[in-house]
Design a binder for these strands. Structure first.
Length: 196
DNA sequence: TTTAAGATGCCC
DNA sequence: GGCATCTTAAAC
């Protein structure tokens, strides 16, 4: 318990992995203790044929290159004032990634509250991809890290009873890819982000 | 070197 | 609905 999952876990087909990640724990070891959240919402991005993905048509740049590594690496990027975090999926050379969109706080909640500031109450602590990275103190320095290694790692958790899928959030100019049902979340969990 | 746009969140 | 404010990529 609370130990990094075996690296082979990430070698599932991308959509399968996106579903299996629901209920897993994401853990960040800090000097002040462990910050732990349960993943309740994910989104898959499959570069080669996904117009909404940064790696569409295998575009390889400084930003997207980590997605060409083997599954389990950390892909971080900046969105306006926020850091968003992904799990690289697919075999070497196939630039897939899974965005972690929301978590439910499990341990270290007081520290998460401090990291977020006073305005974040209740579900607003971690119900969005930019919010959870701030709560967990995740920054761009984890670009290229591996999710099976401390101090930032995935651990076994609690599989959800019911999983819902639907269109991804915040995709507007990607034509047919706009409606791909590649968003997965735990039914009735209050920390799932709002659709826009 | 300059400029535009973005897988968001907070405030008005 | 506006705007903050950072990284990247593609235009000059």
């Amino acid at each position: 318990m609370y130990q990094p999952i075996e690296p082979s876990f990430f070698q599932l087909p991308t959509l399968e992995l996106a579903k299996k990640l629901l209920g897993k724990f994401i853990i960040h070891d800090q000097p002040t203790g462990k910050l732990i959240g349960k993943i309740v919402e994910t989104e898959a991005y499959m570069g080669p044929k996904d117009k909404a993905a940064h790696s569409y048509q295998n575009r390889k740049t400084k930003r997207t290159k980590v997605m060409f590594e083997d599954a389990g690496h950390v892909y971080t990027y900046q969105m306006h004032t926020h850091t968003l975090i992904n799990i690289v999926a697919g075999p070497v050379g196939v630039p897939h990634a899974i965005l972690i969109r929301a978590i439910e706080p499990i341990a270290g909640i007081e520290q998460m509250q401090k990291n977020r500031g006073l305005h974040a109450k209740g579900v607003n602590l971690t119900n969005g991809p930019g919010k959870l990275t701030k709560a967990l103190n995740i920054t761009m320095e984890y670009y290229g890290h591996h999710w099976a290694k401390k101090p930032l790692y995935i651990a076994k958790g609690i599989a959800p009873e019911h999983i819902i899928c639907g269109p991804r959030v915040g995709i507007h100019n990607s034509e047919e890819a706009t409606l791909y049902p590649w968003r997965f979340f735990e039914q009735d969990n209050p920390f799932v982000s709002k659709f826009r």
